[in-house]
């Protein structure tokens, strides 16, 4: 049964990945990535990584993709112009060469380990309990660094995306700056209404 699930999930992950690259509309690319991530979570489950699979679905397919959808909706998913630059041709060629090289490296290698099914399964492998124990003992420092990184990224995003006066070309603000004013503007005569300019 496991091979069937593996091929279904692998097919889903690969088709989702191709969809991300091929679809012209960024909105559909985001939806293809959601499909890819869910298929990838199924592959993680087959590899007995329950917690990673759950985190993948909740954090990625849930939170990060919602952020993407909002930004695509805000920026507008305009159709992309295709150009005939040199990189448009060289990119796929480079990717194909890399794919062939990686497949030769893995399938043609004499490594005994990767043709086996891996270490015998111990109950509890990849469960939140084990992962949490590792995070709070052996990998405590990376855990804390990751939390600091999240804080820095959150503050950085707010600073980057906030509305800044002076940087953007706001026509209303510009018009207000160059409005012609009479020489009596701001004087007491104007404020009491005794003298209006023309």
């Amino acid at each position: 049964m496991a091979p069937v699930f593996f091929f279904l999930a692998a097919l889903g992950a690969l088709s989702g990945a191709i969809g991300v690259v091929m679809l012209r509309n960024p909105f559909y690319s985001v939806l293809a990535l959601v499909f890819h991530l869910i298929s990838l979570a199924a592959l993680f489950l087959l590899l007995r990584a329950e917690f990673v699979a759950a985190a993948q679905v909740i954090v990625y397919a849930g939170a990060v993709m919602v952020l993407y959808v909002f930004v695509v909706a805000y920026v507008g998913s305009g159709e992309e112009l295709t150009s005939g630059g040199g990189l448009r041709v060289l990119g796929p060629v480079f990717a194909l060469v890399l794919a062939i090289e990686l497949c030769i490296a893995m399938l043609g290698s004499a490594l005994k380990g990767i043709s086996g099914k891996g270490a015998p399964y111990i109950p509890g492998f990849g469960s939140p309990r084990h992962i949490g124990t590792l995070f709070l003992t052996k990998y405590l420092f990376p855990f804390e660094v990751a939390s600091l990184l999240l804080l820095v990224a959150a503050i950085g995003a707010v600073v980057l995306a906030r509305r800044r006066r002076g940087l953007e070309a706001d026509p209303e603000y510009q018009a207000r700056l160059h409005k012609p004013v009479s020489h009596l503007a701001g004087s007491m005569a104007e404020s009491v209404g005794a003298r209006r300019d023309r």
Binding site: A2, P3, F6, A10, A13, L14, A17, I18, V20, V21, H36, L43, L46, L47, A95, L96, L98, A99, L102, C103, M106, L107, G113, I114, S115, G116, K117, G118
Partner: peptide, 17 residues
């Protein structure tokens, strides 16, 4: 499933990206 197949899928996804 042999672990090698997962690595092949991973390599293909990386290349597509």
């Amino acid at each position: 499933m042999a672990i090698g197949w997962y690595l092949v899928v991973s390599a293909l996804i990386f290349v597509i990206g």
